[in-house]
Design a protein around this nucleic acid. Sequence first.
DNA 1: GTTTGTTCGTACGCTTTACTAACAAACATG
DNA 2: CATGTTTGTTAGTAAAGCGTACGAACAAAC
Lengths: 383, 383
Amino acid sequence: MSAPEAQRSAPLRALRPSAKVLPEHARSHNRSLVLQNLYRGGLLSRADLARETGLTRVTISDLVAELIGDGLVVETGQREEGRPGKPAILLDINRAGHRIIGVDLSDTGVFRGAVLDLDGGIVTRMEAETDGAEGDEVAAIAVQLVRDLVAAADAPLLGIGIGSPGIVDLAGTVLSAPNLGWSDVALQQLVADATGQPVVVANDANAAALAEHSFGSAVGDFMLIRVGRGVGAGLILGGTPVYGSRFAAGELGHVVVGTDGGDLCVCGKHGCLETWLSVPHLTAGLAAAPDAASRDAVLRRAGERLGIALAPVVGALNLDEVVISGPVELLDGSLTEAAIETFRARTMAEFHGDLTVRMSSLGQDIVMRGAAAMVLSGRLGVS
Amino acid sequence: MSAPEAQRSAPLRALRPSAKVLPEHARSHNRSLVLQNLYRGGLLSRADLARETGLTRVTISDLVAELIGDGLVVETGQREEGRPGKPAILLDINRAGHRIIGVDLSDTGVFRGAVLDLDGGIVTRMEAETDGAEGDEVAAIAVQLVRDLVAAADAPLLGIGIGSPGIVDLAGTVLSAPNLGWSDVALQQLVADATGQPVVVANDANAAALAEHSFGSAVGDFMLIRVGRGVGAGLILGGTPVYGSRFAAGELGHVVVGTDGGDLCVCGKHGCLETWLSVPHLTAGLAAAPDAASRDAVLRRAGERLGIALAPVVGALNLDEVVISGPVELLDGSLTEAAIETFRARTMAEFHGDLTVRMSSLGQDIVMRGAAAMVLSGRLGVS
DNA sequence: GTTTGTTCGTACGCTTTACTAACAAACATG
DNA sequence: CATGTTTGTTAGTAAAGCGTACGAACAAAC
């Protein structure tokens, strides 16, 4: 869900400077590998981990000892099985011992946040009305919400994740978010200073995509289309989010779709994807429709436009899946069906026929949970 | 340039199995790091490399000794400068001591190959007519061409790179290339068995994109559009090629563009990108045009369609650059101009205004040179 | 009840890797 | 000629993972 405007001089993403790699980096990679296996499967023994990772039992024991020392892993008892041999000591991530804070700044008029457990489950919810505030004022509201959440956490925090609208660079600075009146707001720094916790900030659609990747059922390469006040997308290729050279990847809302005009958009163009698909336009269209059939036509038209926009992107990237996130009552059903039909009619089944298009199952909390997934990914290397 | 059909049950790209990392992997990474710096800058001393990479002089000396032992690096004499201190011994990649073989199978009726030096310069050219052969027969022609090139090489080979039309998986098997009558042809294995050399096979558009990345002026994230008998694309994000989940990334030729119909395509749909942009369609359109003005209109219409197709892709990925490769007399000029204009009219300048669209400067040899770049990348880690 | 085989986790020593510290060689400058 | 600088190399050290070996704990077979 993106802002209609962004600053022209956004910094270029630094090209991978090809840094040296030391053995200790390998160590930290293997540490993450252990955590990933524990995170997914859970309840594995050291010997299981050795088999799973290819590392030796000795190395695994060493890594696990380190992780237990850091409080990230706990022994949860013995495996009770009728197998011969010494019974295994089961390990798991210290799920009860840590919490994550996830915040969603993308809603209109309200900031939503939560204390989450390591599985993305919500422990405590909080909201803060923004009352049309802008700039520093609304930033202060966000910081206060995070402070309240930190105070409400019932276990040590792993970190704080924030999904913000607009363009966000890799340092967690919101380069531009017109809806909040933000321009070059160093949100990550701001919240880190206020709480002393590790903070990750990313675009809300990217966060949502990560949630679908971590907690939803998305596998492989996929794009998440987020429909709300605007239209934005988050993209995950090979397990890694795509940010774009100027951090504006997924800014699809103001791309013109089709060659037959369309409504005038706030950006000045006609036929932007937002003029077909955004929630305000959809609800307006539905309200103006006299009967059920024409309401269905509104939804189908929007779905068709989505399919038209998807075709070249899926063609270029050969995606596995497109996930749609937003109000179910609007998006599920005719709209999604029309999108699929249109997409299929416009691409070659041999290349892209196995693409699946579906609604997200994560509902309203998708950004908060995605923000939590960002923390998991950053702190544990779990993806 | 891709095949109109591909098999339906293409294998899914294996998802990163999250392998363990050993210190020796770090070593090989640092080895590549040294080679990359030498490859680009050239003529650096060990101390220079240490400063450049952040590794110590000791480690660099060790790595360089290994690389000299492998014949990949040579000392090229002392630096003659009026600086105090011991004069530096300059190093460079052993450019004269190695050759690469690059092959382009994407042309109609002829396979083109070359012996190249490490900078992508062409030392010896060869061609082989295919005379409409198909299947195993045409594969044998390709293998023989490679054999002849190997025999013609005047220095030890670093490896063999092949750019093939169609869908190619990571193991170098051509899953599908209708123009050649290929289906599941293990080309890499075939050529490796015939020559005993390291072989890399990839889609021709991906190879071309890599050439533009390595030898051309493309920086950052970009897409290369290859216009020939068909239309295909190669995509490089963050310095790495994008293959797609079923290796069909870049298969844009049979995506329908626009919402106002279009000519009937061989695939059965109307208005595929190929029906606007491919060389056969362009030349046919130009031949049918009565005067210069209407010939220009043909080119502009094609450019517009390209711009329409580009808009959602660039929007989703926030690319820096789009490079077009193909017959200059058709593509450069009105067509490219129209593509740029159309693209700008359909996206937000604030997000994607700094996109550049231009012709490739690598000409006809782009695929062969890209194939050589694949070898460089695979064998030296140079990208 | 004992033996056998299996599995688990750990102790020890070794190899690889890159680092720090120190030093000789070679040059410019005063 | 003495001094300072830069280069490349020679030790010795710390980290990481491996292979081997071993004790502990259990099931199954006799």
